[in-house]
Amino acid sequence: MPVDFSLTEEQKELQKLARRFAREQIAPIAAEYDAREEVPWGVVEKLHEVGLLNAIVPEEYGGMGLGMLEEVIIGEELAWGCMGIYTIPMASDLGITPLLLAGTHEQKERFLRKITQKPALAAFALSEPGNGSDAAALRTRAVRQGDHYVLNGTKTWISNGGEAEWVVVFATVNPEARHKGVIAIVVEKGTPGFTAHKLHGKMGQRASGTYELVFEDCRVPVENLLGQEGDGFKIAMRTLDKTRIPVAAGSVGVARRALEEAARYAKEREAFGRPIAEFQAIQFKLAEMLMGIETARAYTYYAAWLVDTAQPHAHAAAIAKAYASEMAFAAANQAIQIHGGYGYMREYPVEKLLRDVKLNQIYEGTNEIQRLIIARHILGQF
Score class of each variant (00 low, 15 high):
13 E>G: 06
156 T>D: 10
90 M>G: 04
310 A>R: 15
278 E>M: 07
319 I>R: 01
41 W>G: 12
93 D>E: 10
373 I>D: 06
196 A>H: 03
223 E>M: 13
50 V>D: 10
2 P>T: 14
193 G>Q: 05
315 H>F: 11
270 E>G: 00
309 T>Q: 05
324 A>S: 07
69 L>F: 09
102 A>Y: 06
34 D>L: 03
281 A>M: 14
158 I>T: 11
30 A>R: 01
148 H>P: 09
171 A>P: 00
361 Q>C: 13
73 I>M: 00
169 V>R: 03
52 L>V: 08
215 F>C: 00
254 V>T: 03
148 H>A: 09
292 G>F: 02
113 R>Y: 15
28 P>K: 00
227 G>E: 02
342 Y>I: 10
85 I>W: 03
228 Q>A: 13
144 R>N: 08
322 A>N: 08
202 K>D: 15
231 D>L: 07
358 K>F: 13
64 M>C: 13
295 T>F: 09
55 A>H: 14
35 A>R: 12
345 M>H: 08
331 A>C: 09
18 A>Q: 02
100 L>H: 06
55 A>D: 12
195 T>L: 08
99 L>K: 01
373 I>E: 02
281 A>Y: 08
239 T>Y: 10
76 E>T: 02
283 Q>A: 08
327 M>I: 05
67 G>E: 03
282 I>F: 08
132 G>Y: 12
314 A>V: 11
281 A>I: 14
146 G>P: 10
135 A>C: 13
77 E>D: 11
197 H>L: 15
238 R>I: 05
329 F>V: 14
233 F>P: 03
36 R>G: 07
108 K>P: 02
75 G>S: 11
135 A>P: 14
266 A>F: 06
85 I>V: 12
327 M>Q: 05
86 Y>Q: 08
314 A>E: 07
187 V>A: 11
28 P>W: 01
202 K>T: 14
360 N>W: 00
117 Q>L: 15
187 V>R: 07
35 A>H: 07
284 F>A: 13
110 R>K: 15
32 E>W: 04
257 R>N: 01
172 T>L: 01
194 F>I: 07
63 G>Y: 05
98 P>E: 00
343 G>S: 00
290 L>M: 15
231 D>C: 05
195 T>E: 11
169 V>E: 03
131 N>S: 15
298 A>W: 04
186 V>W: 02
232 G>K: 08
328 A>E: 00
70 E>G: 09
159 S>T: 13
251 S>F: 01
170 F>P: 00
174 N>W: 02
173 V>Q: 12
91 A>C: 05
82 C>D: 14
361 Q>D: 02
16 K>G: 11
381 Q>I: 09
57 V>A: 12
284 F>M: 13
189 K>S: 12
243 T>W: 08
172 T>K: 08
254 V>K: 04
180 K>V: 04
19 R>E: 09
246 P>A: 05
381 Q>W: 07
318 A>W: 01
309 T>H: 14
365 G>C: 03
166 W>A: 04
161 G>W: 03
9 E>H: 08
234 K>F: 14
36 R>L: 11
290 L>K: 14
369 I>G: 01
